[in-house]
Amino acid sequence: MSGRTRAGLASARALVQALAYLAPSLLVFAVFVFYPLVRNAQLSLYDTTPFGDLSRFAGAGNYAELLRSGEFLGSLRVTVLFAVYTVPAGLVLGLPLALLANRRMRGIAAFRTAYSFTIAVSIAAAALIWEWMFDPNVGILNYLLSLAHGPRIGWLTDPHWALPAVAATTVWQSLGFNVVVLLAALQGVPDELVEAARIDGSGQWAVFRHVIVPAISPALFFVGVVATLGVLQSFGQIHILTQGGPVGATNAIVYSIYRNAFFNFRFGLAAAQAMVLFVLVLAFTTLQFAVFERWVSYG
């Protein structure tokens, strides 16, 4: 009996000690992660004043308004299209670069740095560089097009081209990350596996297709999910390049939240949009963790 009490006392003391070490993190998480999550859910159920105070309980009113609003449905459409433009392109461009960077030769470190260099470039810097290249009059892209007798394109002002232009900027900026992750995965493929396939008489392509791709498929999947999450949360490039325009062609979900909250001062409606974003992100993060788990256990 007294032994149990002593054990209980010891574990209580351990708990108090541990909490002292955890307190700084817990405080920050409580104030800036958990409380705002609850507050956001609450805001989404209310009409709010332009100052952000609750004015009237609206129930599902904000959500109903979203479903009726062409702007919100449009922003979902833009976000999906944005993902379609960027995620496969990021993989298709990232994998060959990672394969090249995985070669064993003198000076390979320089190539690895070069191929993954855009990690060092912020989204704002990338957007500014591409905005300059997209310049309709003196930009380098229209000049290169003119060499091929192509038309002069209003990359950021033409509703057909604005989203592909924003997507190109995004793909370039995230390429470095894709290369680093895929390269790390390629380096984890055992030499013996590749050698064995070669001895069996498989050609380069067969080895790539039937040995390397399956071996790195979790990394490919991981890159795809991270890119999708990146699209769901993209803001800076849109704010700099197009401000959601022309005519909503690049009005992806976070930009739409930003507009509703900080320009239209409809905090309740924007909070409801944020809840929808939360559900989407949660779905993809869960997928990512699930695959990560499988990878760790069977990899």
Binding site: I257, A261, L277
Partner: peptide, 12 residues
């Protein structure tokens, strides 16, 4: 907390 994107806690 890794599952909660910054955009969701932005307004509060």
């Amino acid at each position: 907390t890794l599952m909660i994107p910054a955009e969701v806690t932005l307004i509060p």
